[in-house]
């Protein structure tokens, strides 16, 4: 073979190899970048929620300890006023009623922010309390089942708030009369299953439109649990949330 021809072939070969290496490098870089982006995104969400949850906890505790304590102190001081007559008695009794209303509001807001019971008694008790509170004044029957032995401590708050958000949707919008609420262990996964017999909704509504904020909150919290959400719903067919969380 002509040595010049050989040189051309070698040059070509080297060129191709260099090109391939460059392409491979480029592809690897893109993949790495994507992975980093995803993990950065997850970390960002986690950081945001960690911050948010810490704030919620602080506000709930302040409401509980300071505001709640002070309101009850005012009420007990009012009760020290005795032998009241006529208008004065009416004023005091009205004030006591108003204090009761404030107290109930404070109590409700604080519980919705961060239930103290979650840390004290764990998921099972906290879920029971939540269901009780949601169904206290309305005629919804909730079939509650809890069948898991444990759940990682650092993740309980996310699971709890996912469930609370779903129950919020159910109570506010579904017009359901029966709800199944179950937490179970299926193979190596924890499953949260909430199903109602209400009016359902159109899933195609974008999660970012104001109305779908609840769904957005559910899915971003679920992301922190590395959970998979299966949502089955159609207008007038109820809604079925099946959430699988790897343990």
């Amino acid at each position: 073979m002509d040595p010049r021809e050989t040189k051309i072939y070698i040059a070509l070969l080297i060129g191709i190899i260099v090109f391939l290496v460059l392409v491979a490098f480029f592809v690897v870089t893109i993949i790495r970048y994507q992975r980093k982006k995803v993990s950065f995104h997850t970390q960002k969400i986690k950081a945001e929620y960690d911050f948010l949850d810490k704030e919620r906890k602080r506000i709930a505790a302040d409401l509980h300890d300071r505001v709640g304590g002070s309101i009850s102190a005012v009420k007990i001081h009012l009760q020290c006023l005795t032998s009241l007559e006529g208008r004065n008695s009416e004023i005091v009794s009205n004030s006591e009623k108003q204090i009761d209303d404030i107290m109930n509001d404070v109590r409700r807001i604080s519980f919705n922010m961060m239930p103290v019971i979650l840390k004290q008694k764990g998921l099972d008790e906290a879920f029971r309390e939540m269901i009780d509170r949601f169904t206290a004044d309305i005629g919804i029957h909730v079939d509650y089942r809890y069948g898991i032995e444990s759940f990682p401590d650092d993740k309980t708050i996310h699971l709890y708030l996912v469930a609370q958000e779903i129950m919020n949707n159910v109570i506010k919008h579904s017009r359901a009369t029966h709800v199944l609420f179950s937490v179970s262990q299926i193979k190596k996964k924890t499953v949260l299953h909430i199903k109602d017999n209400g009016i359902g909704f159109n899933k195609n509504m974008t999660p970012y439109s104001g109305k779908g904020l609840g769904l957005y909150n559910i899915s971003s919290r679920a992301e922190l649990l590395h959970a998979t959400i299966y949502l089955t719903t159609k207008p007038n067919k109820g809604a079925d949330y099946f959430i699988e969380i790897p343990v």
């Binding site: 509980h64 009420k75 007990i76 204090i99 109590r107 103290v116």
Partner: peptide, 24 residues
């Protein structure tokens, strides 16, 4: 009790209390 959940009241009664009052 005030904000304390119902389970805490039950627990207090089981622990030896014989009455409870809500702070309101």
């Amino acid at each position: 009790s005030f904000f304390e959940s119902e389970s805490m009241i039950v627990q207090a009664l089981e622990s030896g209390a014989i009455g409870y009052l809500n702070k309101n």
